[in-house]
Nucleic acid binder design. Structure first.
Length: 747
DNA sequence: GAACTCAGCTTTTTT
DNA sequence: AGCTGAGTTC
């Protein structure tokens, strides 16, 4: 019997939630209480009761969680489970927008999705064009204001209006409003949407068009939302619109794990669910299956210091477990060293590397940890941080693909117009921008038209390269159907000269870039395999919305390093919560604001509850921040944990200087002396020019970037001599170089 | 145009 | 400390 399988091993509360299929349902699920399991089983149960998979919509926080849930449901109920709409809010919105936004007249369906840095680049352009001072109008600040407004469903016009009516508002906000209006205008012009637009415009679409709303309301008879405590106004409104017709809405979350206030998440969405849906059934899941009693007690103790919360106590039948381990190291290097040391002993206790996670509050902390791992030769993976899709070479190839897919995308065009170098400099780009602004044409239209290039007063050389570039892009547009997506990616990389540039300039950095591009081709292959009929546009859409976390592969035995935020929803047998210092965790920016401080404490709660068996809490007495040594007090969160739960050296602050310490403790506090420079970040190989070598016509030279060539002309002598070199690679051609400055060698 | 130097800023967390 | 952007030089 299928239903037996669904209910097998569930506790009474969980059964209740899985069994309640109709009407609004709120599942308050404490950390580790089997929340994912309930969601999965509930989906399976809906299917078992004859609900069609395409009538179910389930929203999760990451694509990874979505896929996992899909597989689990499929193993319970069979393949039809794969037809459930299971995705993140953002992918869901992208999908319905592709399908229907064009019919509402709001946007075209072929829009590009800009990530944070693309949209910041656009804001920066606008600030420049408005002749505003970049010191006062910091692009990132303006961006976050606009983002906050969008997350609250405040469009540009309403944002501007709300300021005009308020005479006290500063000039700053008025300017932000102007930038916001212009930003929207250019996003339309570029045929692009940012992450916030996906939500905002999807809501507008459903509000504006009854037919479309009706269609999706009919389609999604049953809606499930995970991590409901982290929804923002736009997501809340979207949920409300979709569920309005039937109220078959199940939301799952834990107010104590709400840690995304900074991006507009509103904890009240979950707290007032019962007010929004008075007929709602509420199920509390308080039995924890994940952690030992020790860990859970520590978590409960910390979170109980938050005043603004509904009291709740997680409990477990699990074993008492080991006491937590706390240590304070001398500095962040010693902290990392000590962690490495602990991991070695964990290995002797039969823990695998992949059983272990290191959590930190800020990405910057990963550096010291990474160094220690490299030195120790210990396998690790950094989840998040400088993400794969944020690497320069990956953004470059994506920009090429986006431009080919959407010739109006001027942001992508400017990114790669001179990558690899084509002799198109700032002056030329400024002229083009000017001309584009005056003629209201997309940049690409201008560079593909020689007439216009002349009118824009582009010098002959630049004109030539621009035109060649335009021809190349046009050619790619026309020929894209000759290739599969991975082949096309390779074609673009080769034919643009991008690969040549990387291959000719052999540095560790470039080798890493080539490797990353290879990985990108693999992503394309995977996509092509999973979506045989997928177009370039679908591929772009796919990669715009997958996060690093989605790629966390479990098969490799490596220690995971990530921020507390990235760790949400994950669990590990052993967890190290690092950098537990006042000013860092809780972060300095939260100290003035009790709401922010409570959010920090929830982050600490999330961190602690990731651990199943063993929990380590660590901090450093001094830490160098911005290149300066800083003394930090131990985090208050440590002092909120009852003493009896903690083993080992605590309350040792201030740490005595090494000379005052009994010798047997020294190694505990201080990293062993290590050769300086034993770790080096990949640096560009500097090609030192051969100063002191005399050159003459006909000599052969090797250039760091452009390969080999022949000297055509020599002007002057010694270090200051100017050489004219014809490079063998015809696409590079003739270059004038100063001996003393150019990366060249005589061969 | 390319490559260098210097000043100033960075670090909160992310789809 | 390490990165970006502005300014400078040839």
């Amino acid at each position: 019997m299928i239903t037996d399988k669904i209910f097998e091993g569930l506790n009474d509360r969980q059964r209740e939630a899985v069994n309640c299929l109709e009407g609004p349902l709120l599942v308050m699920a404490g950390a580790g209480s089997g929340k994912t399991r309930v969601l999965t089983c509930r989906i399976a149960n809906l299917l078992a009761n004859g609900v069609k998979p395409w009538n179910i919509l389930a929203i999760t926080f990451t694509n990874k969680a979505a896929n996992e849930m899909k597989s689990r449901a499929a193993s319970m109920i069979g393949e039809p489970a794969r037809n459930v709409w299971l995705s993140t809010f953002h992918s869901f919105c992208a999908r319905i927008l592709r399908a229907d936004v064009e019919s509402t007249g709001l946007r075209r369906s072929s829009f590009a999705i800009y990530d944070t840095s693309d949209s910041r680049a656009l804001i920066k352009n606008i600030i420049k064009d408005f002749n505003l001072d970049e010191k006062r109008f910091i692009p990132a600040v303006v961006q976050s204001k606009i983002s906050a407004a969008k997350n609250m469903l405040v469009g540009a016009q309403r944002f501007a209006d709300s300021i005009n009516f308020d005479s006290d508002r500063s000039l700053f906000d008025q300017k932000v409003a102007e930038i916001y209006l212009e930003y929207d205008r250019r996003m339309v012009e570029n045929n692009a949407m940012d992450f916030d637009d996906l939500l905002l415009i999807a809501v507008r679409m459903l509000e504006k068009n009854e037919d479309v709303l009706d269609k999706y309301q009919r389609r999604f008879q049953y809606i499930l939302i995970d991590e409901y405590q982290d929804t923002n106004v736009a997501q809340y409104r979207l949920t409300q619109l979709l569920a309005a017709a039937h109220h078959n809405l199940c939301v799952v979350g834990d107010a104590d794990q709400s840690i995304y206030r900074f991006r507009g998440a509103d904890i009240h969405n979950i707290l007032s669910f019962e007010r929004d849906y008075p007929e709602a059934k509420v199920v509390l899941l308080e039995e924890n299956y994940r952690s030992t009693k020790m860990i859970l007690d520590a978590a409960n103790a910390v979170i109980s210091n938050n005043d603004n919360r509904k009291p709740k106590k997680l409990w477990t039948r699990n074993a008492l477990g080991d006491r937590l381990t706390f240590f304070e190291a001398l500095n962040e290097r010693a902290e990392a060293q000590q962690i490495v040391h602990e991991i070695k002993s964990l290995r002797e206790q039969n823990f695998a590397y992949k059983d272990i996670a290191l959590l930190y509050r800020t990405n910057a902390q990963s550096r010291a940890l990474e160094e220690a791992f490299l030195n120790a030769g210990m396998p690790y993976v950094i989840v998040g941080g400088l993400k794969f899709y944020e690497r320069r070479e990956i953004k470059d190839i994506i920009a090429y693909l986006r431009l080919i897919n959407n010739l109006q995308d001027s942001i992508s065009l400017t990114r790669i117009i001179n990558v690899p170098r084509r002799g198109i400099g700032q002056t030329t780009i400024a002229k083009l921008d000017q001309f584009a602004a005056n003629s209201e044409l997309p940049l690409f239209d201008i560079i593909s038209d020689v007439e216009m290039l002349i009118r824009a007063h582009i010098p002959a050389k630049a004109k030539q390269s621009l035109y060649q570039f335009a021809v190349f892009i046009h050619d790619c547009v026309e020929r894209q159907n000759e290739f599969s997506i991975p082949e096309f990616v390779l074609h673009v990389l080769e034919a643009s000269g991008y690969m040549t540039e990387l291959r000719d300039n052999v540095t560790t950095e470039n080798e890493a870039r080539l490797e990353n591009l290879g990985e990108f081709v693999n992503v394309a292959k995977e996509f092509a395999r999973d979506n045989p009929s997928g177009a370039l546009e679908d591929f772009l859409n796919h990669i715009a919305l997958i996060s690093d976390l989605d790629n966390l592969k479990e098969e490799e035995d490596r220690v995971s390093l990530m921020t507390v935020h990235s760790a949400k929803g994950l669990e590990f047998p052993v967890v190290f919560v690092t950098g537990l210092e006042e000013g860092l965790f809780p972060h300095a920016s939260s100290m003035m604001d009790s709401d922010a401080l409570e959010e920090e404490r929830r982050a600490a709660y999330v961190a602690i509850t990731r651990a199943q068996k063993k929990l380590y809490l660590t901090c450093a007495t001094t830490r160098s921040t911005f290149g300066k040594e800083q003394m930090n007090a131990r985090s208050r969160f440590i002092d909120e944990i009852p003493l009896e739960l903690i083993a080992s050296a605590r309350r040792t602050r201030p740490t005595p200087p090494p000379s005052m310490m009994p010798r047997r403790f020294q190694s505990f506090y201080e990293a062993p002396a290590q050769p300086k420079k034993s770790f080096q970040m990949p640096v560009k190989n500097k090609f030192m020019p051969d100063v002191g070598v005399e050159w003459s016509t006909g000599d052969r030279a090797r250039h760091g970037k452009w390969g080999e060539g022949t000297v055509l002309k020599v002007q002057g002598a010694g270090a200051n001599a100017q050489l004219t070199i014809v490079f063998d690679d015809a696409s590079i051609g003739k270059k004038n170089l100063i001996v003393q400055y150019a990366p060249i060698k005589k061969i």
